[in-house]
Simulated scan of single mutants.
Amino acid sequence: MGIEFNGVCYETDENGYLINLDDWSEDLAKILAEGEEIDMTEEHWNIVRFLRRYYDEYQIAPAVKVLTKAIAAENNMDKKAASEFLYGLFPKGPGLQACKVAGLPKPTGCV
């Protein structure tokens, strides 16, 4: 399986997540987002960049609970508002969709 972009085929798993994390680029992220029916805005990019920084530091994608807590703190909102904000950006699940667009592995605990 894979995604073809600019004449290059990028390998993905059966769920569409990149196999080689080093293949990721912002241009490829736009293609991944299109596949998820997401129109990338600066708010989407902020989440994607947060996820990539987190992964660089911990070598794992954050659980949705961790992501929600971090976004709440960064945006001075309560966890419920942060959760609604994240689901507004990534309606099929912020962990699943945001990690896919960020070029990260499927988060642990997500089915």
Rank of each mutant, 00 (worst) to 15 (best):
V8P: 00
L32R: 07
L21F: 05
M77E: 01
N20P: 06
E84I: 04
L96S: 04
V8T: 14
V8H: 02
P105K: 01
K69T: 13
G88T: 14
P62H: 07
N75W: 02
E11R: 15
Q97S: 04
P91E: 05
T41D: 13
E57H: 05
A61I: 05
Y10C: 11
A81C: 00
E57L: 07
P62W: 07
A72F: 07
K30D: 00
I3P: 02
K80A: 04
A70F: 03
W45L: 12
Y10A: 13
L86E: 03
R49A: 12
P62C: 09
L86R: 02
T68W: 01
E34S: 14
G7K: 10
G16C: 15
E42A: 09
A73E: 14
G16L: 14
E34K: 15
L104H: 10
D27W: 00
G109W: 08
C99T: 09
N20Q: 14
I38T: 04
P94L: 04
L28W: 02
I3L: 15
F50I: 04
N46M: 03
K106M: 13
L32K: 05
Y58L: 08
W24C: 09
L32M: 13
V64N: 08
P62T: 10
D27I: 00
N6M: 13
L96R: 12
E42K: 10
A102G: 06
G103C: 05
I38K: 11
F50T: 02
G16N: 14
D78E: 02
L51Y: 09
L18C: 11
E43N: 08
I38M: 06
A29T: 10
A63W: 12
L21P: 01
I47P: 06
L86F: 03
V111L: 11
M40H: 04
A70P: 01
F5S: 00
S83N: 08
D13N: 15
R52S: 12
A70H: 10
W45P: 06
T108C: 03
V64T: 12
F85K: 14
R53E: 15
I3G: 02
K79D: 07
A29D: 09
N75Y: 13
L32H: 03
S25K: 09
R53A: 14
E11V: 13
L18W: 07
K79E: 14
L86W: 04
G88P: 05
G16H: 14
Y87V: 05
Q97I: 01
F5H: 14
N76Y: 07
C9M: 13
T12I: 15
D78M: 00
S25A: 10
W45T: 07
V8W: 00
L18N: 06
K65P: 00
K92E: 12
F5K: 00
A81P: 00
Y58W: 11
R49H: 13
E14G: 09
K69I: 05
Y54P: 07
D56M: 08
L96H: 10
M77C: 01
G95M: 03
Y17D: 05
P91H: 04
S83T: 03
I19N: 06
W45Q: 12
E43Q: 08
D39H: 08
